[in-house]
């Protein structure tokens, strides 16, 4: 039997096996991982801090005091726009954080709340 110039039965088996593994990983990568990543994303905002929790393999929790927020904005690429979604970007003097793909209404609300709290927090300091 000759498939793609490979005569040996064993080599053919290895080829098929590897392809199957890669295919499975690929499907996991585009189907399962984004789903899990989305499911694991949590954020909360109050007048003192922004709390972000995310990650599947490495779980990260970040606290950003609102008095450190320098600016906050919403961003929307063509794909996000097609689905009426937007990403909120929060910048401090040192780091930039994102809350990805919220629906437009929520994103605007989140942005406005953060900006309002940030202004209040700054007045306190």
């Amino acid at each position: 039997m000759t498939v793609f110039g490979i005569e040996d039965r064993l080599h053919f088996g290895v080829l098929i096996g590897l392809s199957a593994v890669i295919l499975v990983l690929y499907i996991l990568g585009i189907v399962l991982l984004p789903y899990l990543r989305w499911k694991k994303w949590r954020y909360s905002i109050d007048e003192n801090e922004i709390d972000l929790k995310r990650g599947i393999l490495v779980i990260q929790r970040t606290l950003i005091p609102l008095s450190r927020v320098q600016h906050v904005d919403t961003r929307q690429g063509p794909i996000l726009r097609a689905y009426s979604l937007a990403t909120v970007t929060i910048s401090t003097a040192a780091t930039t954080h994102e809350i990805p793909a919220l629906d437009e209404y929520t994103a605007d609300k989140v942005r406005n709340i953060i900006s309002k709290y940030a202004r209040l927090a700054e007045e306190d300091v």
Partner: peptide, 15 residues
């Protein structure tokens, strides 16, 4: 008053 943010992270093995 100078710290910009704080992060706790753990891989699943660490968890």
């Amino acid at each position: 008053n100078r710290a910009q943010d704080a992060t706790k992270s753990a891989s699943w093995i660490q968890k």
